[in-house]
Design a protein around this nucleic acid. Structure first.
Lengths: 153, 153
DNA sequence: CTGTAAATCTATAAATTCTATAGGCAAAAG
DNA sequence: CTTTTGCCTATAGAATTTATAGATTTACAG
């Protein structure tokens, strides 16, 4: 399960990507539009900025905007910033490796071997979906759905 | 990240699979051998029994043993019993679906669309590894490693 | 250079989930 | 009918996640 933090981050990024022409967007605006607790969002945006995905400006006319082309931001990038990693066990984490306490022999640990494959599988999905892709898929679904409703009327 | 519960479960199952000929194994024996808090393990084994993977016998000569051929138990089976599911978001859970609070339109939610792919990817790994496979892989690695040490001496 | 608008930082509270333990109950075997 | 063993319920403790509050810093506008 991904955390609420990550979900909020993705929602916020979608919003920013959709409205990239209008210039910086206020935290408070984003919070209200996407129904995210403002102070919580604040911390999330900060992480994303430190992770290089967003840029900010302080003071009047300030706010947040994407620092990179949404086609160059992968969902893996985002998830990694907020969840740290998507390794199913610590002993497979790139960013915060720790030995699993009771694992007497890491190199032959069955769980580790299987989870290494899981990690690869997840990575290959998330590395290959950009923020722009995600937005596009969402739009496609929205249209598809709208059409169906239209047709029903 | 998978929980300690799941890691303990896999360790316990490996132990039971390796020692399937010697008959039922005591909780306390398992706990000691695999370094798992006994009472915690108790609950885990109970879940696995209710999930159909283990069988137990009470009283003298009792204990736990596999209820199924280790080639017929997938790691997916095990993970599902202990983590409930491996859906990255509740709105994709088969067993305990809940609408994601702030998601105004589930059918077009970008996060959901991407995470559906993640879920599939994880499932296709875990559905295709049996307990026996995992054990075998582990054994292979152990031998490989042993050989290297041997060679070094 | 002053007032105001905004993000930033630090600290902490509240809620939830995960890990672990305790103690008595129930079943099976001899 | 006593011993061995798993079964059940409750609860405590720890860690993590989610959320809030308040003071601080930066930048622009006039």
């Amino acid at each position: 399960m991904i955390s609420k933090k990550t979900k909020y981050a993705l929602k916020a990024l979608e919003h920013l990507a959709r409205n990239s022409e209008v210039g910086p967007i206020l935290i408070s605006e984003l919070a209200e539009a996407e129904n995210i607790p403002k102070k919580f969002l604040e911390a999330i945006l900060l992480s994303l900025r430190k992770g290089g995905i967003l840029q900010s400006r302080i003071g009047k006319g300030g706010g947040y905007s994407l620092a990179v082309d949404p086609r160059r931001v992968t969902i893996a990038n985002v998830v990694k910033i907020l969840e740290g990693d998507f390794a199913p066990v610590q002993c497979l984490s790139d960013t915060s490796y720790t030995r699993c306490e009771e694992c007497s022999d890491e190199s032959s640990c069955g769980t580790r071997l299987v989870m290494a494959d899981v990690k690869k599988a997840v990575a290959s999905v998330l590395d290959n979906v950009s923020l722009a892709d995600m937005l596009e898929r969402s739009e496609n679904e929205r249209r598809k759905h709208a059409k169906v409703i239209d047709f029903a009327i």
